[in-house]
Write a protein that binds this DNA or RNA. Structure first.
Lengths: 160, 160
DNA sequence: CAAATATATGTAGTTAACTACATATATAGC
DNA sequence: GCTATATATGTAGTTAACTACATATATTTG
């Protein structure tokens, strides 16, 4: 798309590019794990890694931690339970809660994954450490939006 | 999500954040147009704007221009045709082609939208002109990936 | 302590992009 | 000029997130 189109559509126009970017990277991620002989879907990472670090968590606290809406987490947990990487049990104190944890199979998987992360981290650094760092840019945009939304900022210009 | 999780999951982990970011902005975009009394969905922008600039285009050339897969464009065109913002006719030279153009209603819409774009552009600049510019960062990442994919870069580290 | 409210989980359906496949027409090569 | 290949469009189904709603259990409040 030419530059003035990007300008006029603003952040909107980049959303598709970002999505495609992450699709591409997801696919490559899958292949990288495969190259190490690990049958693992990149989308599982946030849930599994969080359980690896925190041992046992409820569905909602897990969702908050990884920054997903809870139905998204539930559907990932279903897949992971099917693969026997995680299991769940009822919280005896608060019976509304379902506590989720890694199985032995899950723990084994995670430990075989550690060397892969190193490779992924290095490749990611190569890609994002350009003049304008993508990670930092996203953090900055999120922080900026938290102070004042896109809508509020636009409204300020409307009233002029 | 904490920092080391972001590191270990690399670009993967930011994909959700980017998606949520663009969702949020899409919704605000809708409200901004509404505040100007325009009933317009932000996702229509790339197609309409391109037709505004280029008059008449086939489905595939339009898709290439906006950077979408052609089925995505077709589904947008269906919505826009239903709203009577665009119409299409057969190319007399190459009868495989469907030529798409704005209707009078579409042209009118676009001209009422121009003042809104100014507001959107300004608000977008406010948000993205942080220390690390998001637009520029994305351009840089795309360019970097075009030279050598994520997978190829990872492979280089694997063989060490 | 009963009623109102809040929280945790789960289900159903939506969204906006995609890929894979099917078909029609055009173009190129022998 | 026929055949093979390429291109244009269209349909169907997928993906990975979401929101809205439903239900069960806890907690707070009058």
């Amino acid at each position: 798309m030419e530059q003035n189109v990007i300008d006029a559509s603003g952040l909107l126009a980049i959303s598709t590019r970002l999505q495609r970017l992450s699709d591409q990277i997801r696919k490559d991620g899958l292949l990288i794990y495969k190259a190490f002989g690990i049958d693992f879907q990149p989308k599982w990472f946030p849930v599994l890694y969080t359980l690896y670090k925190k041992s046992t968590m409820s569905v909602v606290s897990l969702s908050d931690e990884i920054g997903y809406a809870h139905p998204s987490t539930i559907s990932l947990l279903k897949e992971l339970e099917k693969e026997k990487f995680i299991r769940s049990k009822k919280d005896k104190i608060d019976t509304r809660k379902r506590l989720v944890e890694l199985t032995e199979k899950g723990k084994t998987l995670l430990s075989t994954m550690e060397p892969v992360w190193e490779v992924i981290i290095k490749a990611t650094e190569e890609i994002t450490n350009t003049e304008n760092n993508l990670m930092k840019a996203i953090n900055e945009v999120e922080a900026t939006l938290q102070q004042k939304s896109f809508l509020q900022r636009a409204e300020a210009y409307m009233n002029k």
